[in-house]
C-alpha cells in the first residue's frame, strides 16, 4: 500500500516534469468567482465579469498566457504567497495591512464607496451588520460605535443574512450591492456611504517584481487607450470611466 502512495506521488512528479518542455510564461490568475460584477461564475461555470475581461486584456497587452483559477476568499492570500497562483484579481482593495504581506499593482478601479443595504430605511448605522470575512468592510464595521459585526465566508451569504433577518444591514462595495438592490424589491440603500481603501489593484507576491512591472505597464497602456474605462462602463451600470 505504501508503494501505491509512492507511485501516486511519483506519478504527480513525472506528470509535472513531462510538461517542463514548453517555457511560455504562464500566469495563473487567482480570483474568488463570487463577487459580481467584479468576478463570478457564469452559467457555464467559467470565470466571468469585469475582472475576467480586464485580466484577459492585460494578459494580451503584456504578452502573457493567462489561466484562471478560483480560490476561497479566506485563503486567497496564503495561496498566493505559497505560489499556487501568481496574481490575485478579485476586487481586492489596496490597504496598508495587505500591502505588508503582498504587493499591489496600480489601481485598475478607483476607491469605490462602500454602502449599507438594509430591509428598511430606518437603519441608522447601529445594530447587527453583516460583512464578508477579511474585507475592508469587515474591519470598518468592527471599528464603528454601536455596531455589531457578523462575518460570512462568501458575499452571497451576507445578503442572505439581511434578507432572513439575521443582520440589520450589510456593508459591501456599492458596485456589488447596486445590481442586487436594483433587482430586489425588499432591499434598499440606507445610511451614508463610506469610502474605504485606495482602489482595487492586482495582488502579486512581493518577490515577483518583474511580473508586477509587466502588469503595471499593461494597466497604464489600457488606461491610456480607454479600455479600462470602456470595461468599467460595460460592467458597472451608471458609472463613467474615471481614467
Amino acid at each position: 500500500m505504501k508503494k501505491l502512495i509512492l507511485t501516486t506521488a511519483a506519478l504527480a512528479l513525472t506528470a509535472g516534469m513531462a510538461m517542463a518542455e514548453s517555457h511560455a510564461m504562464t500566469v495563473r490568475m487567482g480570483t474568488e468567482g463570487a463577487y459580481p460584477p467584479y468576478n463570478f461564475l457564469n452559467d457555464n461555470g467559467e470565470v466571468d465579469g469585469f475582472e475576467r475581461d480586464l485580466g484577459d486584456a492585460i494578459c494580451e497587452t503584456a504578452g502573457l498566457t493567462c489561466e484562471w483559477v478560483t480560490n476561497d476568499w479566506d485563503s486567497i492570500i496564503p495561496n498566493l504567497v505559497s505560489g499556487n497562483y501568481d496574481t490575485i484579481i478579485a476586487g481586492m482593495s489596496i490597504t496598508e495591512e495587505r500591502d505588508e504581506v503582498i504587493d499591489f499593482t496600480q489601481a485598475y478601479f478607483p476607491a469605490d464607496p462602500s454602502a449599507f443595504a438594509a430591509m428598511s430605511d430606518s437603519f441608522d448605522g447601529t445594530g447587527v451588520i453583516a460583512a464578508q470575512t477579511g474585507t475592508i468592510q469587515a474591519s470598518h464595521v468592527a471599528s464603528m460605535d454601536g455596531a455589531e459585526l457578523v462575518e460570512f465566508a462568501t458575499p452571497d451569504e451576507t445578503i442572505a443574512a439581511v434578507k432572513n433577518g439575521e443582520a440589520d444591514a450589510v456593508l459591501a462595495d456599492k458596485a456589488f450591492l447596486e445590481p442586487i438592490v436594483a433587482e430586489d424589491g425588499d432591499l434598499m440603500f440606507a445610511g451614508e456611504d463610506v469610502v474605504l481603501g485606495d482602489g482595487i489593484g492586482i495582488g502579486v507576491r512581493e518577490s515577483d517584481e518583474e511580473l508586477k512591472a509587466k502588469l503595471d505597464e499593461a494597466i497604464t497602456a489600457l488606461k491610456e487607450d480607454g479600455t479600462v474605462n470602456e470595461l468599467i462602463e460595460k460592467w458597472f451600470e451608471g458609472m463613467t470611466g474615471p481614467y
Binding site: 504527480a12 509535472g16 511560455a24 504562464t26 505560489g83 512581493e206
Partner: peptide, 28 residues
C-alpha cells in the same frame, strides 16, 4: 519574507501545465 519562491521548473505542477493537471495534483 512571506513568499515561498522556487525556480520555475521546480513548481508542482508547473504553472504552464493545463488546469486538469493542477486538479489531479490537488486531488492527490
Amino acid at each position: 519574507g512571506n513568499d515561498f519562491v522556487v525556480c520555475d521548473i521546480a513548481k508542482l505542477p508547473l504553472s504552464n501545465s493545463p488546469q486538469w493537471v493542477h486538479e489531479v495534483y490537488g486531488f492527490t
